[in-house]
């Protein structure tokens, strides 16, 4: 850890020292080797390959878009009657147009992912602070591993755990919440029994995105300027005040982009939602009731096996919508970080 920091500092200093370091390299070097043509050619080929790999990534994203559009095409163009019949069959007669079908799904996706972020965010920042500023140095490396362990557990295992362990255990708690906070429309009862509701799924997703947000924010907190922190402490600031004044503002853009990353992850999570949620098809904001919302990803996994060719096209089209949403979220995260950094 310390070595990486050291190396990063070195790199940063070197960047400052020799901003023009890359200019005097290639051609003189090639000539100095005694004008070996093979060396120059290898150089060119390698350069071409590296550039090609970069361009390949652009092409891969273009290909994703292209093939999804290609496969989703029949969902937009073609026999209108057959199309609306396919939508009616997929939605159990609840919708007949594409936007009517995808609307509640988008709502459900955003609602569940947003809730997960809301739950994960404070805890993640807390853990990151605990690791970076509270725990003793040796403990904090161990804790970092533990957090990364959370990230390593496959989503299907979270799905199993959520469906078989969490749901029976949390049913009583959500029932209690519905009884005592039911006057808030959001928590209006009756709570689902078993608790296969939006609230439970969001909780599991929060656990899943927690390590992502934590690891990014932790790295940023560790990089907060030491001097200012020490100055703050020296001036009599309490530890929390020091964090509020010298650490959090420094990590602000990082925290935001980390949560956007977590949000992107929650938006696309499939298995846990598929195995836990009792899906519904509405715009209802009732977190504890069953059968109110469904996410796009889980809907694809759920309906794909039984879909005919028009149905598959429709599901791919909803996948395209999900792709666009996550694209926007990630793009925004990127914009926030670059803006703050510029």
């Amino acid at each position: 850890m310390a070595d990486v920091d050291q190396a990063m500092k070195e790199a940063a200093m070197a960047k400052e020292a020799g901003a023009g370091r890359r200019t005097p390299d290639r051609d003189p070097a090639g000539q100095a080797q005694g004008g070996t043509h093979s060396g120059a050619r290898a150089d060119r080929i390698f350069r071409f390959c590296a550039r090609g790999a970069g361009i390949l990534i652009l092409l891969a994203l273009a290909a994703v878009t292209l093939f999804l559009i290609l496969k989703a095409f029949p969902a937009f163009i073609g026999d209108g009657g057959q199309r609306s019949k396919a939508i009616e069959s997929l939605s159990g007669g609840r919708a007949s147009g594409f936007w009517q079908y995808v609307g509640p799904l988008v709502f459900g996706t955003v609602l569940i992912a947003g809730l997960a972020l809301l739950m994960a965010f404070p805890v993640a920042v807390g853990i990151a602070l605990f690791i970076s500023h509270y725990a003793p140095a040796r403990l904090s490396t161990a804790l970092s591993y533990v957090v990364d362990l959370l990230a390593a557990i496959p989503s299907v295992v979270y799905g199993l755990w959520g469906a078989l362990v969490l749901v029976p255990h949390i049913t009583g708690f959500w029932g209690w919440v519905a009884r005592h906070l039911g006057w808030i429309p959001l928590f209006a009862g009756p709570a689902a029994a078993p608790a296969r509701s939006v609230a439970t799924v969001a909780l599991v997703l929060a656990v899943m995105i927690l390590p992502i947000i934590t690891s990014v924010t932790r790295d940023i907190f560790l990089q907060a300027p030491r001097l200012q922190q020490e100055a703050a402490l020296a001036l009599g600031a309490t530890k929390w005040e020091m964090i509020r004044l010298a650490v959090l503002p420094f990590g602000r853009s990082g925290i935001i982009s980390a949560s956007m990353l977590g949000l992107g992850r929650a938006l696309g999570e499939t298995m846990a939602v598929l195995m836990i949620l009792s899906p519904g098809f509405s715009y209802a904001l009732r977190l504890l009731r069953p059968s109110t919302s469904q996410t796009i990803a889980a809907n694809i996994a759920s309906q794909f096996p039984e879909a005919d060719s028009t149905g598959v096209a429709l599901l791919v089209a909803t996948g395209l919508v999900l792709f666009i949403i996550t694209f926007l979220v990630n793009y925004m995260a990127r914009r926030i970080t670059t803006k703050a950094g510029a």
Binding site: S89, G92, L164, P194, R196, L274, M275, S278, G280, S291
Partner: peptide
């Protein structure tokens, strides 16, 4: 139809999901 027509109660994926619920 092959999809359940109302939003009553709970729903689950597959026979195993229904039985588990």
């Amino acid at each position: 139809g092959e999809n359940w027509p109302n939003d009553l109660g709970q729903s689950a994926k597959g026979t195993a999901g229904v039985v588990m619920t």
